[in-house]
Simulated assay, not measured.
Amino acid sequence: MSIKEEVIKAISELPNDVTYEDIMEEIFVQSKIDAGLNQLDEGKYLTHDQVKERMGKWLS
């Protein structure tokens, strides 16, 4: 499915009283989810232990 088709599908599933802001948020969130899934497919991610190590430095 093309991005255009995905956006049309997402918008069609929103309630009829949706605002422009709601539509933009839906598209934005979906684009970030897709970007994250692409990063996973490309092996660009951190393990749980790596995240804990990085967070530990911030929380110390």
Rank of each mutant, 00 (worst) to 15 (best):
M1D: 09
S2P: 12
S2E: 14
I3S: 06
K4Y: 12
I8Y: 11
K9H: 07
K9L: 04
A10G: 00
I11V: 07
I11S: 00
I11C: 01
I11L: 08
I11M: 04
S12G: 09
S12T: 08
E13Q: 07
E13N: 09
L14W: 08
L14N: 03
P15V: 00
N16R: 06
D17E: 13
T19K: 02
Y20H: 09
Y20I: 08
E21C: 02
D22P: 04
D22Y: 04
M24Q: 10
M24F: 13
M24Y: 10
E25W: 14
E25I: 09
E25Y: 14
E26H: 02
E26N: 04
I27C: 03
F28N: 07
F28P: 00
V29Q: 05
Q30M: 15
S31G: 03
K32T: 05
K32H: 10
I33P: 01
I33R: 06
I33D: 04
I33W: 07
I33A: 05
A35I: 05
A35S: 03
G36V: 03
G36L: 14
L40Y: 15
L40V: 04
L40R: 04
D41R: 15
E42Y: 14
E42N: 15
K44N: 14
L46M: 15
T47Y: 06
T47M: 03
T47P: 01
D49M: 06
D49W: 09
D49P: 00
Q50A: 01
V51Q: 00
K52I: 06
K52C: 06
K52H: 08
E53A: 13
E53D: 13
R54I: 13
R54H: 09
R54L: 15
G56K: 08
K57E: 10
K57T: 05
W58G: 01
W58N: 01
S60C: 07
